[in-house]
């Protein structure tokens, strides 16, 4: 069985960063996935027609978390090697992708979007008044150290283990780390909220801090109903009134 070269795998990994370049409602990441598979298809299928047929297979609907898709991409490359060698059916690649897409998407959304990103951003926002622009590096460093390491590891594990990637990801503790990150993020958000009120208390009219505290609580309570834009404009009007001492 022909194995893909390291250079081809590296090119695939680089192209995985463009998975969502042509995200569309019909095929979602289909074109991005086919684009990332391109170097592997070029190497495995020297015949033009066979290559086009393989590319066509990868243009089917595909959707996953963009980072977690690295595991599927690596695994699909391995399965595609077997297909090219006649050891597997073309439908096996499709089955591999459709089976792993949704669970990995849920795992990635929960960990990266809803836990790691808020935690890293809140840590940076909470420290920004003290460390200034270094807060940007805190955010990027913290987030991308985890993100890039996870992406490289998942791509490699996907290629080496293919169908066994599920078991490998089970040992990664993504799900167990999520509640801890969210608790830290909540504590940091609370500290930022307290600081927002204390800043007013240290100003020329300390009693106004009560008004801004009430505004903060009201915004928290009504945010789901009002949405961010209306909350911001209502907040601006209340703030104008408080600042001008009408309230």
């Amino acid at each position: 069985m022909k194995r893909l070269s390291v250079l081809t795998l590296a090119r695939m990994f680089f192209r995985s960063f463009f998975l969502q370049a042509a995200w569309n409602p019909r095929g979602m990441q289909n074109l991005g996935f086919a684009y990332a598979m391109g170097p592997a298809l070029d190497e495995l299928y020297p015949d033009r027609a066979a290559r086009a047929a393989a590319a066509f297979r990868h243009l089917e609907f595909f959707n996953c978390h963009p980072y977690m898709a690295a595991a599927i991409l690596g695994g699909a490359a391995r399965v595609e090697e077997r297909v090219a060698a006649g050891e597997a059916e073309p439908s096996d690649v499709s089955q591999f992708k459709t089976t792993l897409g949704p669970p990995l998407a849920a795992l990635g959304d929960g960990f990266f979007w809803l836990a790691l990103r808020p935690s890293a951003a809140l840590l940076a926002a909470a420290t920004a008044p003290f460390i200034g622009a270094w807060a940007v590096l805190v955010f990027l460093g913290l987030y991308n150290t985890v993100h890039l390491a996870a992406r490289v590891w998942m791509f490699a594990a996907g290629y080496l283990r293919a169908e066994g990637i599920v078991e490998t990801l089970g040992h990664a503790h993504y799900a167990s780390g999520t509640p801890l990150l969210k608790a830290c993020a909540a504590a940091l958000a609370g500290a930022i909220a307290a600081r927002a009120v204390l800043l007013v208390a240290e100003g020329p009219r300390p009693s106004a801090a009560v008004g801004f505290g009430v505004l903060l609580v009201a915004a928290f309570l009504f945010l789901p109903r009002l949405g961010v834009p209306r909350s911001v404009y209502l907040g601006l009007f209340c703030g104008l009134a408080l600042g001008a001492r009408f309230l």
Partner: peptide, 26 residues
């Protein structure tokens, strides 16, 4: 008045940050 409005933006943004953490214990 505009300085007050800026403090209000900070207050609303802090409220948004707490809401952003989708966890019942947040």
């Amino acid at each position: 008045a505009l300085s007050g409005a800026w403090h209000a933006v900070l207050a609303v943004s802090a409220a948004c940050a707490i809401r952003a953490i989708r966890d019942s214990r947040a």
